[in-house]
């Protein structure tokens, strides 16, 4: 398939190159599930806890692990790659062919989004098989929240790529933003265990809203529209900003 923004040859190439990046593979695909396994191996994490609404901490950490891969991919993976492609003139070289460099941007998004979904699937599967975490009781709502979260993470990554002139800057901004983002996703303290006010504030951020939507769907409710709306709003805002500021060279 060949359009200005999607080219299967470019997509295939980017997928192949992604598989050659052990760092990206580890942090996006393996690390979230590894963290879940480590935490789940602590006996107290497998006992019901009143501060987690009666869930076991390991139950609460599955959605966290689900969000972790896309957080790392959106903040560290994609911006580094795209900024490097611009810095090295790879986007420029592609502008001199009948295929537009936008095809490279799209391919990166598809690869990164795909890896984030794969990472999420792995976390859910390992949670189920190793720690007996029940599968989401509202699977459609869960999937919808997850897809919106992936889109928000990709648009955030696109904005970082647009704002960073060099890979060094992209690396610095990415790491600076990674910790707040992981906090909002609940890596240190799952949102269920956060004080009410904090949870409400975090709910306005993309990853906080995603975490709450995933928790609701896991418990069997349709995710609250306000969380989904926060995700959609962030995606729209960030996409507009990225397309306004992104430079091909």
């Amino acid at each position: 398939m060949k359009t200005d923004v999607l080219d299967t040859a470019v997509l295939r190439t980017e997928l192949r190159l992604f598989r050659r990046e052990p760092g990206a593979l580890f942090w996006m695909l393996a690390f979230p599930t590894l963290l879940l396994v480590i935490l789940g191996s602590i006996p107290s994490f497998r006992e019901a806890d009143p501060s987690f609404d009666g869930l076991r901490p390991v139950d609460a950490y599955v959605p966290v692990a689900v969000l972790l891969g896309l957080t790392v991919g959106g903040l560290q993976g994609m911006p580094q790659v795209l900024t490097g492609y611009r810095e090295r003139g790879i986007l420029r070289r592609m502008s001199a062919t009948p295929v537009r460099p936008a095809a490279l941007l799209t391919a990166q998004m598809v690869v990164c989004g795909g890896a984030a979904l794969g990472s999420a699937l792995l976390a859910v599967a390992v949670g189920r098989l190793a720690f007996d975490v029940s599968l989401p009781e509202q699977p459609l709502g869960y999937l919808l929240a997850l897809l919106l979260a992936v889109l928000a993470a990709l648009s955030l990554g696109a904005v970082l790529s647009a704002l960073s002139r060099t890979t060094k800057i992209a690396g610095a901004i990415g790491s600076a933003a990674l910790f707040p983002a992981m906090f909002c996703a609940g890596v240190w303290l799952p949102v269920q265990a956060m004080p009410d006010l904090l949870a409400r504030i975090v709910g306005w951020t993309p990853f906080g809203a995603a975490a709450q939507a995933l928790n609701e769907a896991a418990a069997g409710d349709w995710p609250d529209w306000s969380h989904l709306a926060v995700l959609v709003a962030w995606t729209a805002l960030l996409t507009a900003a990225a397309s306004r500021w992104f430079r091909w060279e």
């Binding site: 190159l17 990046e21 090295r88 003139g89 790879i90 420029r92 070289r93 001199a96």
Partner: peptide
């Protein structure tokens, strides 16, 4: 075109 300043993906 062969451009004056451009590269390819390092692992390609």
């Amino acid at each position: 075109a062969q451009l004056q300043r451009s590269e390819l993906q390092p692992k390609l």
